[in-house]
Structures are given as C-alpha cells and as structure tokens.
Amino acid sequence: MDERQEKQTGAGRPRSRKALEAVMTATLNLLKTTSYNQLTMERIAKEAGVGKPTLYRWWSGVPFIVMEALMLQAESEIGSPDTGQLISDVHQYLKQTFRSLTEGTGETVRSLMAEAQLNPDFAGVFRETFISSRRQTLIRILERGVQRGELPQNADLELIADLCYGPMWYRLLNRHAALDETFAASLVSYLFDSDGR
C-alpha cells in the first residue's frame, strides 16, 4: 500500500496480519452472497471477528476495504503471466482478467467504478491504486516484449494498455457483448498480429 492510500485509509500504525487477512477473507466471502450496496462496516467487522474501530482505524469506509480485497484477489488469481512470448502473455493476462470479471468480481468492480464517480475521496485512491496496479501489471508484460524485441523500443506502452483496457471496460459497463476467451484472442490478434489487421 502506498503513502497516499495509507493516508486515505486512515492507517496510523502497522496492521495485524491476522486481522487484515480476516477482513479480506470476510469481505470476499460476503461479496459472494451480498451485493456491494448491502455491505456495511458492521457486517464486515462481524464476519471478520474484529471490532468496528479496527476497520475505521485502517480504512475510511466500505469501498476502500472492498477495493483492497479485490486487488489482493486479482494479484493471486491473475498475476503476471510470463510464457516467454508477448502475444501469449497478453492473451493469458486478458483471458484471466475477463474470467475473473465474468465469474466473480464484475458486478463489484462496476459498483466501485460507480462509487468513484460519486465519491471524490475514493475516486483518486481507486484510480491510483486499483486501476494503476492492474495497468502496471500489463505494462510490465509489454516491457518484457520490448526487451525481447517483440515491440519497438519507442512503442507507446501506455497507449497499448489503453487499447487493451478500453474495450474491456466498455463491455464490462455496457454488457452489450461477452468478456470471454474469444474476445481476448481477437483483441490480442488485432493489436499485435499485423497480418490480422
């Protein structure tokens, strides 16, 4: 967690690893049966077996807890594939990201994005931590492609990341088409396979 996030979450002293894991696990478990809008600090504290003051000492509110739980889950479930080939790495990354959104976290991520539009305090942290962390994972994959000569040294990696994430967010928010493996493969082919353009 960076300094800005520490300030936003109200963390004033080192967090107990055991309590932190309990809160993260409780939050993810609740999200399996409870919508984001029904989550409260009370419910999370009770499910985690910790006191509400503990939550408020570490986080400013429910969206901050949910965001951190989803970040940890993404790091565990998606990671940063390294097959030795750029196209394969990006395909794996997108496929795993789409699967996570489709099979579990999509509705909650949509809710956090809506929260960010209405809550300026949360919006900055959401952008600089959750969004940034996923973008940086993809950019590291792209950087490996540059190092292997699969992309030019002057490739605009931020733009490539936007071209990967833009269609994903569009489909996630509008729900007009599937986020599936076929879409991941088509997107990667369009972006990186010159013969497919």
Rank of each mutant, 00 (worst) to 15 (best):
M1G: 02
D2Q: 05
E3C: 10
E3R: 08
R4W: 09
E6D: 07
Q8S: 10
Q8G: 10
Q8A: 11
G12Y: 02
R13E: 06
R15L: 11
K18H: 07
E21Y: 00
A22Y: 00
A22I: 00
T25M: 04
T27Q: 02
T27I: 01
L28A: 14
N29C: 03
L30H: 10
T34R: 14
Q38M: 12
E42P: 09
R43C: 09
K46M: 11
E47L: 13
A48L: 00
G49R: 04
V50T: 07
K52T: 07
P53L: 01
T54I: 01
T54L: 08
Y56W: 06
W58V: 03
W58E: 02
G61A: 12
G61P: 00
G61N: 00
G61I: 15
F64T: 12
F64M: 13
F64I: 12
M67P: 07
M67V: 07
E68F: 01
A69L: 00
L70W: 11
Q73V: 06
Q73I: 06
Q73S: 12
I78L: 11
G79L: 03
T83K: 11
G84H: 12
G84E: 13
G84N: 11
L86P: 14
I87A: 15
D89F: 05
H91D: 13
Q92A: 00
L94I: 15
F98R: 11
F98P: 02
S100L: 04
L101R: 04
T102L: 05
T105S: 15
T105E: 13
E107P: 04
T108G: 05
V109Y: 00
E115G: 07
Q117L: 09
Q117S: 06
N119Q: 07
D121N: 10
F122C: 11
A123G: 02
F126M: 14
R127G: 04
E128N: 15
T129S: 14
I131E: 06
I131Y: 02
R134L: 08
R135K: 04
R135A: 05
Q136F: 07
T137K: 02
L138P: 05
L138A: 10
I139L: 08
L142T: 09
G145D: 02
G145K: 02
R148P: 11
P152I: 01
Q153C: 03
N154I: 11
D156L: 02
E158C: 09
L159N: 12
L159A: 08
L159H: 14
D162A: 06
L163V: 09
C164I: 14
M168V: 12
L172P: 01
L173R: 11
L173A: 08
H176L: 09
D180V: 05
D180L: 07
T182R: 15
T182G: 14
F183E: 15
F183D: 14
A185D: 07
L187Y: 00
V188N: 02
V188L: 05
S189E: 15
S189C: 14
L191M: 09
D193I: 01
S194E: 06
D195L: 08
G196D: 12
